[in-house]
Computed example of a mutant assay.
Amino acid sequence: MSDKPVALITGAGRRFGFELAKSLLAEGYHVIAHYNTSREGVAELEQQGATGVQADLTDTVAIRQMIATIRDVTDRIDIMVNNASCFFDNATVDSDPACLAAVFQVHVQAPYLLIKGLRELLQQASNPLVVNITDIYTDSPTTSHIAYCAAKAGLANLTKSFAKSLAPTIRVNAIQPGPILFLPEHDSEHRQKVLSETPLKVEGGLKPMIQAVRFLRDNTFITGEFLKVDGGRALQI
């Protein structure tokens, strides 16, 4: 086993998970990069030294196999980032029971199983940290994505519960992103509307999210906390 610090990132094949993985690799971490279908991004990370682990987080058997695989490749985890997500609106979950189930499986069940299943590896690190990626809509849900917001609220509750139960050994915090990086399907009208409702009036990009992870890592007196990275948007929703 290596002496490098180890980071486990779920949903590491694209967007924030991918950029965070690259950043931590550059800092000297051994990154365990989870993915479900975004193989291309993880293949790029593997070329930089990451270990790719595939698992469908809607499948409890796959999650338990993922935990076993991680135990085979490392004896510690310094940072766990529960980032994987599925973003379904009301119409989608109403028409497809599998999508409704997936929202809660990916955002609540999978983080729960991963934290519980990898607790012993976290305890082997000198400053172990779990970061759960929730959402500003956890506190003020949007009516267009009811199930998604409820699932993210469940993840927020898990954050508080694990922060209590795993202290003082393991710290557990959450980041609540706002308009960090628009999705490809967001048209210019939607983007302009969102930015007009955001006090700082800009799309944040992924760098502030990476900085937030570093802040939570480096400040060892913070647990059970929720850090908004949203340009002030939560003030106006």
Rank of each mutant, 00 (worst) to 15 (best):
T58R: 15
G224E: 04
L216Y: 04
F226Q: 06
R119N: 13
P128A: 03
L235W: 10
A125T: 05
V106Q: 05
A33D: 08
A33N: 06
T51L: 07
S161P: 00
V53R: 12
K116C: 10
K160R: 15
I175L: 11
V194K: 05
Q109L: 14
M209C: 13
L155F: 01
K116P: 00
H30N: 10
V108Y: 02
K193N: 10
A234M: 12
D218Y: 11
E46A: 11
Y112K: 10
H145Y: 14
F18Y: 15
S140L: 08
A234I: 14
P179C: 12
H190T: 13
R64C: 09
R214L: 11
I115H: 01
H190Q: 11
I70D: 00
L181S: 14
F88W: 13
T223K: 04
R171Y: 06
D96R: 07
I133A: 04
P5A: 12
V61E: 14
Y148M: 05
E40A: 13
V73T: 14
T37Y: 11
V108C: 14
L25N: 03
C149Q: 02
S23H: 15
T10A: 06
L216P: 02
L206F: 11
L20S: 02
R217W: 06
L129T: 01
D187A: 03
F182R: 07
I175G: 02
F226A: 05
L100E: 01
N219C: 08
S188E: 15
I67Q: 11
D230G: 07
F104Y: 15
A62S: 12
K228L: 11
S188Q: 15
G178C: 10
C149Y: 03
T223Y: 04
G178T: 05
S23M: 00
I9L: 09
T10G: 06
S126F: 01
K201Y: 06
I9N: 01
D89T: 07
R39S: 11
R14P: 00
D135G: 12
S38W: 00
D89Y: 08
D94S: 11
F88E: 12
D3W: 00
P179G: 08
D96G: 08
T60G: 03
A167T: 05
V81I: 14
